[in-house]
């Protein structure tokens, strides 16, 4: 059963906007999966059924799309999804040790979620930050030029201060090092969960709104 009726007004509004952005309803399936993830906490079967109803696709069609992409988390993830790049350039500069440190510090194996649901840890392929290797993301917000020790500190900080909005610039300042390029001025938008932070999805949080 779809539970679209339970979606927040805001989410339904965004869903409508996304649906009208394309010449074909089916095209909205990817953005809708993000909005559904935000609304339901994961892209589980229920979320997929919601998206099927919105797009007029069958649940099987939606499932075949959802399962193709790594960022639709069908089993849900913790409060902080820590993605460690272990592709070639990061590997050359010690990414495996960074991953090891994060696994150790959070007591969470690669690909799993901690028992208290605070952390999910995953190794990922290149995240386009190779000039600032090794690179990690928290809820897809970037930290470049991290070290084993700083990675441990990052995990302890997340655990201790539980930021409601994960801000890339803040993490970079506290735990980062070499960047791929000059980032320029700090951004005030960040992620409110492990869904990429975008206005269109309602997933962007603003520093100024932080309580």
């Amino acid at each position: 059963m779809s539970r679209l009726a339970e979606w927040s007004r805001n989410a339904r509004l965004r869903a409508n906007e996304v649906l009208s952005a394309y010449p074909d309803r089916r095209s909205a399936v990817m953005p809708l999966l993000y909005i559904a993830a935000l609304e339901r906490g994961s892209v589980d079967e229920g979320a997929q059924r919601d998206v099927a109803e919105l797009t007029g696709l069958t649940a099987a069609q939606v499932q075949s799309v959802a399962s193709f992409y790594t960022m639709y988390k069908r089993h849900g993830v913790g409060e902080y999804l820590v993605s460690v790049c272990t592709s070639i350039s990061c590997f050359l500069l010690g990414a495996d040790d960074v991953l090891g440190a994060i696994i150790d510090e959070t007591s969470t194996p690669d690909g799993e979620t901690s028992e208290d649901n605070v952390f999910s840890i995953e190794h990922v392929e290149c995240i386009g930050s190779c000039g600032g290797a090794p690179a990690v993301q928290v809820n897809y917000e970037l930290v470049e030029g991290i070290t084993e020790e700083k990675a441990r500190e990052l995990c302890r900080w997340l655990y201790g201060s539980r930021p409601k909005i994960v801000l890339s610039d803040e993490m970079q300042q506290l735990f980062g090092g070499t960047c791929s390029f000059d980032w320029g001025p700090a951004e005030e938008s960040g992620a409110i969960s492990a869904v990429p932070s975008l206005e269109a999805y309602g997933s962007a949080g603003r520093e100024s709104q932080q309580p």
Binding site: S87, S89, C126, S129, C130, G131, F181
Partner: peptide, 16 residues
């Protein structure tokens, strides 16, 4: 979609 390992030039053009 810049995802070829080693590539991060488009990100700079998009962000900056």
């Amino acid at each position: 979609d810049e995802s070829e390992p080693g590539t991060f030039k488009d990100r700079q053009l998009l962000e900056r």
